[in-house]
Design a protein around this nucleic acid. Sequence first.
DNA 1: AAGCCAAACGGACTAATGGTCCGGTTAGGT
DNA 2: ACCTAACCGGACCATTAGTCCGTTTGGCTT
Lengths: 185, 185
Amino acid sequence: MSERADAARNRQAILRATEELLTLHDGAHISLDQVAAHAQVGKGTVFRRFGNRTGLMQALLQERAAQLRQALQSGPPPLGPGAPSAERIVAFLDALSQLAAGNLALLTAHERSCATDRHADPTYLRWHTHLETLIGQARPDLDATFVAHALLGMFDADMVRRLTQEDDPGRFARSLRQLVGELLT
Amino acid sequence: MSERADAARNRQAILRATEELLTLHDGAHISLDQVAAHAQVGKGTVFRRFGNRTGLMQALLQERAAQLRQALQSGPPPLGPGAPSAERIVAFLDALSQLAAGNLALLTAHERSCATDRHADPTYLRWHTHLETLIGQARPDLDATFVAHALLGMFDADMVRRLTQEDDPGRFARSLRQLVGELLT
DNA sequence: AAGCCAAACGGACTAATGGTCCGGTTAGGT
DNA sequence: ACCTAACCGGACCATTAGTCCGTTTGGCTT
């Protein structure tokens, strides 16, 4: 049986409220009391729906990453299947750069709540598997698992923020492409 | 004037207590109440000496990294000055791998408390500057700042733990060397 | 339309903990 | 021996993640 109507409504309210607070406070810590209040919902409801803070952030990230996920599985090349691995890697990292740039506040909050075992996050896991596979194809001599972690490690929110200056917003993606170029050549 | 004798004694007691608790609980969160109790010292003393949790962890990391720091500045090559940049990079990352492997619990705790602005940590900063300089020399065409962050990003405690299996303890350092090889060649 | 109940709700409550404060103590210089 | 700045301890405060339970309600059944 699917979710009851009020439950679905509240889930949305909570997600939207979290988004708003996150952008409003730009990555600063927000308490779940705040979220509940802003969503006009009891605190218990937040926890019933998402289990805990981590669950909430993961849900939000998953939502934001849904489109990319779709594109990877069945979209047109080079993001989707069909292009050579090396090109898919670059396309994927570009897409991720864009996603990260547009969701810094969320990323920060997400990281902070996944403090324990960031690598267990379903979204991270999916990304890692994707990259790992492609790297394994493009450069079978490398330790694909390792390199995939290394590349994804760059999407740490602090890192992105620090490497994205006002006067040169493209630097992050550009330097990342350059680095990947070195690895795949 | 330097630190009073009792102050110095307590500083040591606190550092040692933190170390012990950290290894004992293997990276799990430890409260500063626990630390104070284990050091047989009042809680206020902990905060007076180290400011806050972050300060304590940074102090501990700095202590553990002191030897490496010395070696980098004025030790024998290839860790110290004198060897070609590429070799110094490899030597440095090897040393760091070893340091990380032997201090996983501390690293975890340190990361967790530096959640805000990990990159402001003095030890991280020193390491980054060191790497950045060497990379700039070895490969002036790369974005040295960026690559340095990428390499240091691998020393995330979770990452090291995950990539260090029982049956192959050398994997982390080996794969890192391989990756660096690709970048510097 | 009425009845039923599993599912959902809200918000008071608990526990844990980072950090502050201040009255009392002490190191160590004179 | 005395004096004081530095230091000490632990009670206290504020915040917040997460729990609990009495109450309400969506929506299925009859």
